[in-house]
Design a protein around this nucleic acid. Structure first.
Lengths: 349, 349
DNA sequence: GATCGCCGTGGAAGCGGTTCCACGACTGCG
DNA sequence: CGCAGTCGTGGAACCGCTTCCACGGCGATC
């Protein structure tokens, strides 16, 4: 591997000059610059990023902390991140989080510009102490889909989203509406779906509907959990006529459970999800769309701006939500007897 | 940020000793080691990875080159990669490839251990010249789902897979079988689906069926392309009764096109895909499963073995394929008149 | 009891860049 | 025509770590 000294020798200049050429300094005579460039060409020289990083005190790398492949939604966000990074000079290093320990380890491992020049955290809350430490160390942080103070944040109004979803069901005449979310005390500290639940509760209250605690269930955001929880709801003595699942992944499970129980969607049960992942359009799921791709992209843009010495204020950027009505929601079945719906469920367990 | 010199001063030792403690050298007296460790603790010292990398000539990072989010299958492989990397000391840097230029740029940018200690390339062929250059520079390379000489490779027998899929359709009595793949001259140089096509052609020949060129179409591996190509096939004067799509993504498009044409799957058209991405199980797509997750994981394991100084021979690891029959394939419709099937297609364009 | 290792350690020389400082040559001004 | 200022440049210090080399002290050996 040729070094800067080799280039300097070949070009007959000092290594300081080669470095200036490399970094586009204007204080190099054109003739000199040409000699250096041709020596670089001749030797097929490339600067060593490690040495450069050590010397400049930064590493041209962006860290992305992401609960990796547990949620399809994370992938969509990552796509946005990758697209926002395209054309920039930064490398992307991925910190995969599959447990709370992971999250803390990764965040603790960043102590300065030697590991990552900036940090983008997806869907995971970061302790204020860590945020302050990183900021003090000159590492800008941007949070996407998670709360945090003092740093730019990209969020959606999950409470409003919860309202929109629930209101849609209420408007269709449903009065027994189940809710599926994750446990508010989950160890990761996800908070988004808590807000969705709050929106759900508000709409129930506004509509004068009772809150039936037995219709609210918690579990992880995956299909199997959704399936199991929905099966429980459907086995209730007075089952819901509609279910709001706070993620599309859980909603997919609701669909499966409905089929298991010999019921038809949307005839016997309306289902609405949250996220609008790619799959949802294939399946025809009614859902609340949140701009996942755009959130990742905006997050990166904010981070790049901070790195470009144009520090964005710690604004909370709220991205819009949109109700996407497809084919899993329909008007509530008419009935005189509140137990009516339980009749066709012959093969439900 | 404290440096190794600070630690040395606090512990009253030389920095060489601190370094030895850091790297677990046995030639440090226990008492000394304890003093150093407590100084490290006290100062909350962490070694600077850049400096360490520069000094040792490697950077504790693995590069993964991946046609990022164009294929859902790439994601599945990446999950395997992430899981295989879990617990290792290596960081994962992602090189996103959305164009052939990208691919070449990224591969060219790796010139030694200063950028990545090893390289994992997914689904993209790498020129022998680059492979040799990287090997010479001490950067081990592992290829997954792509051909290459002189390096460990993880593949599936795509030709056999093409045979299995086609044979399944033949066994069901289909005699007019369409094929969807990508253009063999695609600029990325993907080759996997060419082999699937070869398998398709072999089975046709074995079964004594004619190769009808008009039933073979090429396009990118996404849903929209599959939809458009399938629409063309269905508009043929003698349309196929079954279609083998060489990726699940295209198969999804075939399903959509069938619906567009007012036809029913599998009654009017049997559809089989390839990959078995997560989505396929939801949709009930019959397909040929290839172990995507496992391929990524095995690739990383081979790379880590190479890095651990245990260089694996340049073996080709072939992973098994499996026919997964779901609900999009059925026996071919009986008919005396070969144009029979075209009758119900009133609203096809 | 002197010599020979060996062990544990300190110090310095890299690793390959960036950046600051000093310096010579040239320009422009009085 | 002399002097200050600018421009372009070379060289050295430095970034923070690893590793090699040299050296002092100790126990084993004869």
């Amino acid at each position: 591997m040729p070094t800067i000294a080799d280039v300097a020798a070949h070009a007959g200049v000092g290594q300081g000059t080669v470095s200036r050429v490399l970094n586009g300094s204007p204080k190099v005579r054109d003739a000199t610059r040409a000699r250096v460039l041709s020596a670089i060409e001749l030797l097929d020289y490339r600067p060593n990023p490690l040495a450069r990083g050590l010397s400049r005190g930064r590493c041209q790398t962006l860290g992305v902390v992401v609960p990796f492949f547990t949620h399809a939604s994370a992938i969509e966000r990552l796509r946005g991140v990758a697209s926002g990074l395209d054309g920039s000079r930064y490398d992307l290093v991925l910190f995969n989080v599959e447990s709370p320990v992971h999250r803390d380890e990764h965040i603790a491992s960043i102590t300065g510009r030697d590991r990552a020049d900036g940090l983008l955290v997806l869907s995971l809350p970061v302790a204020d102490r860590d945020l302050q430490r990183l900021t003090a160390a000159g590492v800008p942080v941007v949070l996407v889909d998670a709360p945090g103070t003092g740093v730019p944040t990209v969020v959606t109004d999950d409470r409003a989203g919860g309202r929109v979803a629930t209101q849609h069901l209420v408007d269709l005449g449903h009065r027994a509406i189940g809710y599926l979310g994750h446990d508010p005390s989950n160890p990761f500290g996800f908070t988004a779906t808590d807000d969705r639940e709050a929106g759900y509760l508000e709409v129930l209250a506004d509509a004068g509907l009772p809150v039936r605690r037995e219709l609210i269930r918690y579990g992880p955001h995956d299909r199997e959990a959704g399936r199991a929880l929905a099966a429980e709801l459907l086995a209730e003595p007075h089952p819901p006529t509609a279910i709001f699942a706070s993620s599309d992944a859980q909603a997919m499970g609701v669909l499966a459970a409905t089929e298991d129980a010999g019921l038809r969607v949307p005839r016997d049960l309306s289902v609405i999800g949250f996220d609008d992942v790619e799959l949802s359009s294939y399946v025809g799921l009614t859902t609340v769309r949140q701009p996942l791709f755009e959130s990742g992209r905006l997050g990166v843009e904010l981070l790049l701006a901070a790195l470009a010495g144009d520090p964005p204020p710690p604004t909370v950027h709220a991205l819009p939500l949109e109700l996407v009505v497809r084919s899993t929601t329909a008007p509530a079945p008419r009935r005189h007897d509140p137990n009516h719906i339980s009749q066709p469920r012959g093969n439900a367990r």
